[in-house]
């Protein structure tokens, strides 16, 4: 342990706006890794089904939606089997909604640690976003099973998929950073979160098709980043033409969301401990 370049930390009241300190975050990568690992490991501790839940939760949702919206309400899906249509949407939606709600409450649930040890606070909302990705990866099994069953051949659209993966992670990260910082001040977030998520599912083309939205509202509608992710997943996986008019506005909103979330979080960071 010969530290030639001695590290000097200056402690002083912080002021003004600042952004996330990525260099510091990199210094704490080992801890970050272990905390994500912890979240993954404890999630299904003492359950019988364990990681099977990661499959069951979206699967049940898919079945219910297929029965209600596909069979009973007979929503138009442009000729694609409804089960396939909803699967490509529900898999990313399940990830985003779970990551969002856990991330938003991360500071409140982690307040014990918040007051006892220092590490970059922004890790709190980011941990569930990453930990939940494991669930998402597992639930992809359903998706691929459905794709193979319906013999969907991959197209070049698939090359865009990583972009939507990234966007899918960015949305809960941005929302989580903003709402977790808000939730530690106002615990109302915890209650509001429940019905917001329930409403959000209808704000995106998960159970219905985006083409049913009137032309004049399209731009406004597509500002919702969820629309962009869902449409992106559909086009990439099902090989339908890329609906860029639905995708671009949402991509922009996602970027704004992450930047704003990070700024707001950093701004509020210094007083977290004093208000828990």
């Amino acid at each position: 342990m010969n530290s030639k370049s001695e590290s000097i930390v200056v402690i002083k009241p912080k002021s003004g706006w600042q952004f996330i300190d990525f260099k510091e975050l990199a210094d704490y990568r080992d801890l970050f890794y272990f905390l994500v690992l912890r979240d993954i490991k404890i999630l299904y501790a003492q359950t019988i089904l364990g990681f099977l839940w990661a499959i069951l939760v979206p699967l049940i949702q898919i079945v219910i939606f297929t029965i209600i919206f596909g069979k009973v309400a007979k929503i138009s899906t442009e000729g694609i089997p409804y089960i396939l249509y909803s699967t490509v949407a529900i898999i990313p939606w399940t990830y985003m909604s779970q990551a969002m709600s856990q991330s938003s409450l991360s500071l409140v649930t982690g307040q014990g640690m918040l007051g006892k040890i220092y590490f970059p606070r922004v890790m709190f909302p980011l941990i569930p976003v990453l930990a939940k990705f494991v669930d998402f990866a597992i639930s992809l099994i359903i998706l691929f099973t459905a794709l193979i069953y319906y013999r969907i051949t991959p197209t070049w659209n698939l090359l865009f998929l990583p972009l939507f993966f990234l966007q899918m992670i960015c949305i809960p990260a941005g929302v989580g950073m903003f709402l977790s910082a808000l939730a530690i001040r106002f615990r109302d977030v915890k209650f509001a979160m429940q019905f917001i998520l329930r409403m959000l599912i209808y704000s995106a083309p998960i159970v219905y098709s985006a083409s049913s939205i009137p032309e004049k509202y399209r731009l406004f509608y597509s500002l919702n980043p969820l629309v962009s992710v869902i449409e992106g997943f559909r086009s990439c996986l099902l090989g339908t033409p890329m609906q860029w008019q639905y995708i671009f506005p949402g991509l922009l909103t996602s970027i704004v969301l992450v930047v704003f979330g990070a700024l707001y979080f950093s701004r509020m960071e210094r007083v977290f401990v004093d208000v828990i």
């Binding site: 402690i11 002083k12 006892k116 220092y118 401990v273």
Partner: peptide
Amino acid sequence: RITDPTTGR
């Protein structure tokens, strides 16, 4: 570094 001082360094 758990909490920031109000003044001083």
